[in-house]
């Protein structure tokens, strides 16, 4: 039982982690809590659906439920969601920033963006539940009494590949260093010749693309619903804050912990309380480390 819960927790956690990286980026670089992030995730998932509706999810490769077409769909979803995030910034957030809007104004604007996006998804794709593929999958027993779907293993592998790639970009490339520099001090980054607006666009694209991946993975392993992103948002926030806002590594660990807390809790408390568990964990962690597990105290 525990083994199965841990396996499920890691799989859910990986998807939450992808979303949490985006939240973490917007907290650090854009400096506000973006409540529209969940619906960017939904938009990404549905963009992939449009592609698979035309091109199908492909002939299943081995035991998984999809073929190479689905990988193209993920890529397209990432580009669509990333571009949408840049567009939304240009239409909404950039205008507010240029008028020195308060952080709270940005947060409320993001609520508005969330509502618009969710209803747009509802309008275009309808309220019904969708699936990328109707292929039946047989769970494989990876350890005694621990069964996972082949799709879930692929999702986990892809998530870790994306996280490692993103980590390397942040550590080793000049753009990555400039982004980290901007996260610490936009003023000093500007003095170094870093163009702040360009960096903001890059940050939005990455956040949107990672959210789209989380959305397609969630759609693949669960189902697609217009409120899928919004429902995941609180867990994603919990993960980002738990890990320490602004820490990539923290966001990933935070995601995994939230996933594990949700899935392990059903062993001891009724399943109805499952979604409350990450917040209990969050309260506990913040009580001891107010800046999160891997965050650093903010200096003023």
């Amino acid at each position: 039982m525990i083994g199965q819960a841990i396996a499920d927790g890691i799989l859910t956690g990986a998807i939450i982690a992808l979303g949490a990286i985006g939240i973490s980026l917007s907290l650090q670089i854009l400096r506000f809590a973006n409540f529209g992030h969940g619906d960017i995730l939904t938009l990404g998932a549905y963009s992939a659906l449009t592609f698979t509706a035309v091109a199908t999810a492909g002939v299943p490769i081995g035991p998984v439920s999809f073929g190479w077409q689905f990988l193209v769909a993920i890529l397209i979803a990432a580009i669509v969601a990333g571009s949408a995030a840049i567009l939304i910034d240009a239409i909404v957030y950039n205008r507010l920033r240029s008028r020195n809007a308060h952080r709270l104004t940005m947060i409320f604007a993001s609520f508005g963006v969330a509502l618009v996006l969710r209803n747009l998804v509802l309008l275009i794709w309808g309220p019904d539940v969708h699936y990328y593929s109707r292929e039946l999958q047989i769970a494989v027993e990876i350890l005694p009494n621990v069964r996972v779907m082949p799709d879930q293993i692929v999702v986990l592998g892809l998530t870790f590949a994306v996280v490692i790639f993103f980590y390397l970009v942040l550590r080793l490339t000049r753009i990555g260093m400039a982004m980290r520099a901007m996260a610490e001090s936009p003023t000093l980054a500007g003095i170094c010749g870093v163009e702040i607006r360009k960096m903001i666009r890059i940050a939005w694209f990455i956040a949107g693309a990672l959210a789209a991946m989380a959305g397609t993975f969630l759609g693949l392993t669960v189902q697609l619903r217009p409120e899928m992103g919004f429902n995941l948002l609180l867990a994603v926030f919990a993960a980002a804050i738990l890990g320490g806002s602004g820490s990539l590594f923290g966001a990933v660990i935070g995601g995994l912990l939230v996933g594990l807390a949700e899935n392990l809790s059903v062993l001891v408390v009724p399943a109805g309380y499952k979604t409350a568990m990450p917040f209990l964990l969050l309260m506990l962690v913040l009580y001891i480390r107010p800046y999160g597990l891997f965050g650093t105290p903010e200096r003023h």
């Binding site: 400039a178 980290r180 520099a181 610490e184 001090s185 003023t187 000093l188 003095i191 870093v194």
Partner: peptide
């Protein structure tokens, strides 16, 4: 320009500070 305070990136290594300076 070298500002008075906050004139280096404390979370970046020395080498990374110089690389960002050469953006």
């Amino acid at each position: 320009f070298v500002p008075q305070t906050g004139n280096i990136f404390t979370n970046l290594s020395i080498q990374e500070n110089l690389i960002v300076g050469a953006h």
